[in-house]
Computed example of a mutant assay.
Amino acid sequence: MLQINNMNVYYGNIQALKGVSLEITEGEIVTLIGANGAGKSTLLKTISGLLKPKQGEIVFEGESIGGKVAQAIVKKGISHVPEGRRVFSNMTVEENLELGAYLRKDKQGIREDFENVYQLFPRLFERKKQQAGTLSGGEQQMLAMGRALMARPRLLLLDEPSMGLAPLLVKTIFRIIEEINQSGTTILLVEQNANMALSIAHRAYVIETGRIVSAGTAEELNQSDQIRNAYLGGH
């Protein structure tokens, strides 16, 4: 579904991604784990068109999308839930969700997706007329995910969905990520909570200082001493 081949990305003169290659098959949850500053968010921003790769290619469903504008990439079927949620705080929950569907014209389908999002996140339905800025961190995370789902993506990019959330809420968010995947959406998950990420992912990549240094099934990485010691708090 998604293939990245030998991609290099720079911020000015600083190289943030170095020859990154990875692939995602339809229906998977693939997680990307790594320390702060390793290049995880840069990778998602480059896939979604917020950054342009200097070299390499990004192929989505057989079509090269590297360097296309973000709007065109959303239209192709990729939605990005950014780190820090980035909801529109002066707008209501409902208005934020509407914005997620701004490229769509199918009114009936949009109504159905409103229902689907409210079923997935009942808390958002209770707060639909409330300003997004007044929501808790967990509710804002739900809203950011709901907004991305309103575009009906085939591939959902999630950047640090558990950041700053209480442990109980983290479990809820990860359960919902699994539900989204089971309903047919492929997911690329960037997450510092490597234990949680590997518990729901099919496959994983490890990134260090802009390079992919390890890849395998979630189970393989879970059992690797090197990965356990670096990211999973040892044995």
Rank of each mutant, 00 (worst) to 15 (best):
127 R>V: 11
37 G>L: 03
36 N>E: 13
3 Q>N: 10
148 A>V: 08
154 R>D: 03
18 K>T: 00
229 N>S: 07
70 A>I: 04
107 K>L: 10
68 K>C: 00
54 K>R: 06
31 T>M: 09
55 Q>P: 00
86 R>E: 15
233 G>K: 11
88 F>T: 07
30 V>A: 13
71 Q>D: 12
196 M>G: 01
201 A>H: 08
122 P>W: 00
170 V>Q: 07
25 T>W: 01
198 L>A: 05
93 V>L: 13
227 I>F: 06
153 P>I: 09
150 M>R: 11
31 T>D: 14
155 L>Q: 08
191 E>T: 14
133 G>E: 05
47 I>T: 04
140 Q>A: 13
127 R>H: 15
59 V>N: 14
163 M>Y: 11
147 R>F: 14
183 S>R: 14
145 M>F: 06
48 S>R: 11
54 K>V: 04
43 L>E: 02
80 H>K: 12
27 G>Y: 07
223 Q>E: 11
120 L>S: 09
80 H>T: 11
132 A>L: 15
209 T>S: 06
119 Q>M: 03
125 F>V: 01
50 L>N: 11
101 A>R: 05
145 M>H: 10
108 Q>P: 00
211 R>W: 00
20 V>S: 05
149 L>M: 14
8 N>C: 05
144 A>Y: 10
38 A>Q: 12
39 G>R: 06
57 E>F: 00
49 G>M: 02
152 R>H: 13
206 V>F: 07
101 A>H: 06
131 Q>R: 15
226 Q>W: 01
85 R>S: 15
199 S>A: 15
232 L>N: 07
104 R>Y: 05
64 S>K: 15
83 E>W: 12
157 L>R: 13
21 S>W: 06
15 Q>D: 00
90 N>D: 13
71 Q>T: 08
217 T>V: 07
93 V>W: 12
76 K>V: 08
40 K>W: 04
93 V>R: 13
134 T>R: 14
6 N>Q: 13
31 T>L: 10
222 N>G: 05
148 A>S: 11
26 E>V: 04
226 Q>D: 11
